[in-house]
Design a binder for these strands. Structure first.
Lengths: 156, 156
DNA sequence: GATTGACAGTTCTAAAACAGAACTATATGA
DNA sequence: TCATATAGTTCTGTTTTAGAACTGTCAATC
């Protein structure tokens, strides 16, 4: 399957994976959420090759996750900041981090702790239902085809 | 950077990306959460090459996300089911799907709808703070180094 | 006024990963 | 005996990635 084909799939997971479904994109986004913005900053903290970094940044800009804005004239230099669409990836990033915190830490414990500014406490993210506010688990959810589902192939 | 190096990073995101940070692993997990369990089922619904599918399934088993269990003797056949560690990836999958629902749908609308069994309503997942229950956003969180953070290089 | 350094890339080659197709192995049923 | 089902493995060629060097613009320094 080509990457382009993924975008066309009638599946919100596949379409999102077309945007962020490779290791470097996710690591770049981690840096973005840690307030990194510049080419050299991404490159030195990730160790990604310059070639791939340039390509991934272009892709993220093309999909509207990042915006490339000049921060100085002569020579013209650009930095990359999260758009609202990019900021909306926060739950994705945080749920990935949280799974790693639970299942992939060594004896030393978590590399990072997260403080909720509003209540001032260290927290874990919890996924709840938008309608009733109760936690959501795999077994507590039924899936239904939506309006954008693949058409069942009609006979004749 | 090699995949193995990712696992060793003092970062819960990098370590999780080492497990699920490629397009096929995420798509395979989607199928798992849709109750698919068998090699042929994964292969035909994803269009992944048999070679890669075998490799990815081995990787997911090695990391404890899936368990390979025999479902018949003679000839011995196996199927793949989510472990608890795998089930815990549900928030990751759902947050990816939700982002796609918001930002990647075409005019036809969502390919799938999710019903919360407990309250009976179609819902969206919302990420809230484990301590105060309020929604969490990128700008509302402070990051602190934890006990597993990279040691600051000591002088001499 | 020549040289160095910062920054944001681009270009090149070799190594690794992936796609597509065919093949293997074991057993059931026609 | 032959076809079918399932779960893989093997092969070849293409695409992607890693690693390193190179380009271009400008400011600051010797």
């Amino acid at each position: 399957m080509k990457w382009d084909a993924l975008e066309e799939e009638p599946c919100s997971l596949a379409r999102t994976v077309a945007v962020i479904g490779d290791r470097w994109s996710l690591l770049i986004l981690r840096e973005c959420f840690l307030r990194k913005r510049r080419f050299e900053a991404f490159q030195s903290s990730l160790g990604i090759t310059r070639h791939l970094l340039a390509e991934r940044l272009k892709k993220l800009v093309r999909f509207g996750v990042l915006r490339r804005i000049p921060y100085q004239e002569s020579p013209k230099r650009y930095e990359y900041i999260l758009t609202q669409k990019g900021l909306d990836l926060y739950p994705v990033i945080m749920s990935i981090v949280h799974w790693g915190n639970i299942h992939m830490v060594d004896s030393r414990g978590r590399p990072m702790l997260h403080e909720h500014k509003k209540c001032g406490k260290m927290f874990d993210p919890v996924m709840v239902c938008s309608e009733c506010g109760e936690p959501v688990t795999a077994k507590g959810v039924h899936v239904h085809p939506g309006p954008g589902a693949r058409q069942a192939p009609t006979a004749a």
